[in-house]
């Protein structure tokens, strides 16, 4: 039995907007993670869920075309970024993974605390998005 193509205009239109909000919130969580709840892991999971919603609303082909890189590469890049932040402190003679932070004055934002841990979190973020999507797609792609 051939399934009819569902009429999901409402879903597609609303998801386009909603995913934007999810992306923004996940980005906020990612940046908030140093001293407050949030961080790369939870932000990454939320981003993954946003992408997943897109996969649900549209079909596989469309999204695969829209996201032009493979999620497994993303895991590799994320791991490399995370470990690179650790190695950077090694290069300056500190123990592995020593982190630094300082306060900077930006126009518009005011005083902002910037940390090297942010880059580590970026690595975690990429790994989580990549891993979550890889696992989900591994099951989803099978079902033809």
């Amino acid at each position: 039995m051939k399934l009819q193509k569902p009429n999901d205009v409402m879903l597609q239109v609303s998801m386009r907007v909603i995913t934007l909000f999810i992306f923004a919130f996940s980005f906020y969580l990612f940046l908030a993670g140093h001293n407050n709840p949030g961080g790369g892991f939870i932000g990454g999971l939320m981003t993954a869920s946003a992408i997943l919603v897109l996969y649900l609303a549209f079909d596989m082909k469309t999204i695969t075309k829209a996201i032009p890189f493979s999620f497994t590469t993303m895991i590799g890049v994320g791991l490399l970024i995370a470990v690179a932040t650790g190695i950077m402190s090694m290069l300056f003679g500190y123990p592995f993974l020593t982190h630094f932070f300082d306060y900077f004055l930006f126009p518009l934002f005011g005083e902002v605390e910037l940390t090297t841990a942010l880059f580590f979190d970026l690595g975690v973020y990429l790994v989580v998005v990549g891993a979550a999507m890889t696992i989900i797609l591994a099951i989803a792609e099978d079902d033809k």
Binding site: F41, A131, A132, I135, A138, I139, D142
Partner: peptide, 20 residues
């Protein structure tokens, strides 16, 4: 606990794929 949750997340995901 957060670390343990992440690990069990990974293991469970793997187990589900494997069971499938």
């Amino acid at each position: 606990v957060l670390t343990a949750i992440v690990i069990s997340f990974g293991v469970t995901a793997f187990l589900l794929v494997m069971a499938y």
